[in-house]
Design a protein around this nucleic acid. Structure first.
Lengths: 143, 143
DNA sequence: CATCCAAATTAGAATAATTCTAAACTATTG
DNA sequence: CAATAGTTTAGAATTATTCTAATTTGGATG
């Protein structure tokens, strides 16, 4: 079973069409880098670096544009755990995160493994958009 | 009952002594701004602004230094909910947050009101430093 | 398939939050 | 009250991100 078995898109082209985004050379390449190898957590700089390594000519501005468009289209989720650095998560299903404070690495936790038993109601006039659970861990020998 | 009844320090001086930080004019003033009126969530810029309004001469660099020293001493907790902006929370007890995405405001949720029933174990060699639960809400008329 | 135009890309400048640096100041200690 | 280690500071530097205005391109149209 391939890593992307659960993904409903056969390829980058279909995915972009479904998101109503023109399949440009840059977006096609970034789509493949993002979704062709299982769930990932990348920063814009990292993805830009990967593109360069793969000889895909794309500017950092376009990487930022694309990541935000993908978030808007529900293809990515932005994870905020570190002040001044955004991670983009290819897993948009129900799940939470371990965050390794020492290394800055993120790891998914399936939604079912965290039992949020009880939640207070959203304040009047508002509704819940998302509940983030972040388990911050550190190596035993640090701090 | 005053808002700070639960705080174990009678005044700014004691608090700084306990944290082993020299009670300088700047730190004393910032301590009062932070802790003299109940639980708060402030950014460095906000606190700097309040100091200026109160005619306390203190540089932004010192505000940052002080906030981080207070976090290190366990007097404050840094809350990360917004990429590129850090909030400092005077409530260091067990609690979680509502985050109003539209306004950028934070609101405490007492720890007991969120039932995190079940947590996966920390990966080998690591231990849990903290569990953050952030409930992101939006006004019903936006997005 | 040539033309057109809105959408997309881009380099580089601009912004925002934060950190750094090195010099000047100050609280404590003897 | 002098010495000194800790603290503050202005301003420069850094980092991540966004903006701008000009150029390029995908895809529809004739």
């Amino acid at each position: 079973m391939p890593a992307n078995a659960a993904r409903p898109y056969a390829n980058a082209l279909e995915l972009l069409r479904a998101a109503k985004l023109r399949p440009t050379r840059q977006r096609l390449a970034l789509t493949r880098l993002l979704f062709d190898k299982g769930n990932r957590h990348v920063t814009a700089e990292q993805l830009h670096g990967e593109a360069q390594t793969a000889s895909v000519r794309v500017s950092l501005a376009t990487v930022y544009n694309t990541l935000h468009q993908f978030v808007g289209a529900g293809l990515l989720r932005e994870v905020v755990v570190d002040p001044g650095r955004s991670y983009f998560d290819t897993n948009v299903g129900n799940h939470h995160h371990f965050y390794f404070e020492d290394s800055g690495r993120l790891q998914d936790i399936p939604g079912e493994r965290v039992g949020v038993a009880e939640l207070p109601p959203a304040p009047a006039g508002t509704s819940i958009r998302r509940v983030d659970v972040i388990i911050r861990v550190g190596t035993d020998r640090s701090r």
